[in-house]
């Protein structure tokens, strides 16, 4: 005869195994299960890859014409990767829907701090810049049949801009889509 504790463990076990099985079958059938709490049951290791390496920087232009680096800023010190990769750089780029929201939230936060620290020289414009280079350059790799490549070359493009109104509200312009 099972005790109450044993019955509880059996109930948890049946629920756990059933939910895991249902998830696996849904995933195998091509169902989208990667959103919200389902992430805790999604085992989509290697869901994609990128051919370019990138870093995203956000700078602000002040009313006196000077520049300020807003992101990565002084509140972004922890990194699990070498070479100044910020935690938002772990996403596949600023254009990724989720990343963009998080970047803009981080920019909003840094802008608030900037306004508090420098009330006399407010920001008038915010610019999101992506620095990028071919992933193969990370490994000093010269591909066959191609011209010699400059392994240290870094390219950049402006991804998004915003104007800051006198009240401090950030007004985002439409982001520029397209190729690097």
């Amino acid at each position: 005869m099972a005790t109450i504790g044993q019955k509880a463990i059996i109930a948890i076990g049946v629920l756990y195994a059933g939910y895991s099985g249902w998830h696996l079958v849904t995933f195998a059938m091509g169902g989208k299960v990667t959103v919200g709490p389902n992430y805790f049951w999604t085992w989509d290791m290697f869901p994609g890859y990128e051919t370019w390496s990138h870093r995203t920087y956000v700078v602000g232009e002040t009313s006196s014409g000077k520049g300020v680096q807003l992101y990565p800023g002084p509140r972004e010190r922890f990194s699990t990767r070498p070479g100044g990769i910020s935690r938002l750089d772990l996403f596949p780029g600023y254009q990724n829907g989720q990343a963009k929201l998080l970047y803009q939230s981080a920019i909003q936060r840094e802008h608030e701090i900037y306004r508090r620290l420098h009330p006399s020289d407010p920001l008038v414009q915010i610019i999101v810049i992506e620095q990028f280079w071919p992933a193969r350059s990370n490994a000093d790799r010269q591909p066959q049949y191609l011209p010699a490549i400059d392994l240290d070359a870094r390219y950049s493009r402006v991804l998004d801009t915003a104007t800051v109104d006198p009240q401090g509200a950030i007004l985002w312009n439409a982001d520029r889509k397209g190729e690097p």
Partner: peptide
Amino acid sequence: FERLSHAELLSITTDHY
């Protein structure tokens, strides 16, 4: 925050493809 001069700002906000 890290400060950038006007020249630095211009340089990094110009596209380099």
